[in-house]
Design a protein around this nucleic acid. Sequence first.
RNA 1: GAUUCCGUAGCUCAGUCGGCUAGAGCACUUGACUUUUAAUCAAGGGGUCCUGGGUUCGAAUCCCAGCGGAAUCACCA
Length: 518
Amino acid sequence: MQHHLSEQEIIRRENLQELRNLGLDPYPAEAFPVNILAATIRALYDPEAGNFQDVCLAGRLMSSRVMGKASFAELQDSSGRIQLYISRDEICPGENKDLYNIVYKKLLDLGDFIGVKGYAFLTKTGELTVHVTELKLLSKSLRPLPVVKTRVNEETGETEVYDAFSDPELRYRQRYVDLTVNAHVKETFLKRSRIISAMRRYFDAQGWLEVETPILQPVHGGAAARPFATHHNTLDMALYLRIANELYLKRLIAGGFDGVYEIGKMFRNEGMDRTHNPEFTSMEIYVAYKDYEWMMRMVEECLETIAREVNGVTTVQIGENAVEFAGPYKRLSMFEAIQTYTGIDVSDMDEAQLRGACRQLHIETDPSMGKGKLIDEIFSEKVEDHLIQPTYITDYPVEMTPLAKKHRSKPGLVERFELFVNGKEIANAYSELNDPIDQRQRFEEQLQLAARGDFEAMAMDEDFLRALEYGMPPTSGLGIGIDRLTMMLTNQHTIQEVLFFPQMKPEKAQGQEEDATE
RNA sequence: GAUUCCGUAGCUCAGUCGGCUAGAGCACUUGACUUUUAAUCAAGGGGUCCUGGGUUCGAAUCCCAGCGGAAUCACCA
């Protein structure tokens, strides 16, 4: 249904028709022979050499200052903006001045895609400018973009922004507008893309294989979370959108691959906030014949490489903190960390003693919590916030971690680490449990937790157990939350700022059917 | 899910002890101007004050409900 047109939209549609009446196609089909980006000219123009004398570029018309028979305008392409100088007699060499007087001055609107040919020069105020010799409309814009203006304050030297397009709802719902008018937004997403490609390059260079595993899973396993449920009509069976891919990747290690990794979406039917979106991107990797000690060294090298490739340096400013991603990272066992920040030694406590410790620390508990969960509560309440510089927390209680191998020397613990940066977990890794009998027992303990009311307890996966029974080599596995990592490396503090299209409520509540899934 | 705050022009925002025709800047329209740059100058148009009820002689303003959003808190990455 057509929305109510504003005055400015009506004018743009009239301009569109007027262009057609003049025989100009507002949406021409043919390619435009772009040969340069604005940023390239800006970086390499040399007034002495007089280079860039035959440029052809295209983008949106973002501002226009008409001064009679000459105009200055700004063109914005994928790389940024550059000023245009448009002189009437230059683009209209003959008697007919319509292209300038009518098409350019009256029928073009801000936001239109145009193509120009011309040559670079410096104006007498020193602004790098493309002197336009040819001008062509490439695509008409029918809605006005927000006009964001900036000025450099001469006293402070800071760039001041006027009329910023800043409403988060509008920015997320209309990301195309956000990307067009807010240059820093584009920068964040470019970095996100570079983070993923740098990670992929690093893994590929080690000879590990990128794989894809099912998103639709009959048994949701590999993590503690509530899934989205769906239904396959032909098979007439329940399927779940994956909450993790861990158990499938380990099947592939059992199948004989030395290293496999997957970068992909996971789906969890849980709350949404500044750090959680229902679908998010995770990287999981499994490497045979390795352990979690080896994995810690690998993660250090990998993150240092990524930080360097994305930001050029290994130090990242995250809010108030300068975080150093070059390894080696500090290591603390979970019990050491709790002792350090609470003064309490929980290493030998039973469930009742742990409840007492929680009371002492003013941490709420409920009866469904087992020993592992109680320790986890103390840790997240009292320790996490202190872990600013990259820190490995190692050796978790076995109750918390049903898929990790028991510690080689510390009874009751597993060989697991999580990496914390700026008070948040960004990686989780184990020496993977490959003893099928132990694994079956762990699943059974999870079933008991589920019976006590823990919704997040894992389900038994018989096929995975069958794979382990055939045999899986000793393996170390790692998961990294790509969105969280991106937030850190780009200094963004909401997940919505690193997702192009964060999940939102429907735009119009009226006339929308609510799904009866609650 | 809980609490607090917000919703006025295309954009950013003023405007509430309830009171005349709801304002500003940018954007838009008309005109002037051949090296400007938040271009300038002159004139002009543009509003479901989120929606629906209520109180009142009178509601953008007060009350109730709803919708949408933000922040903080709780849980999962």
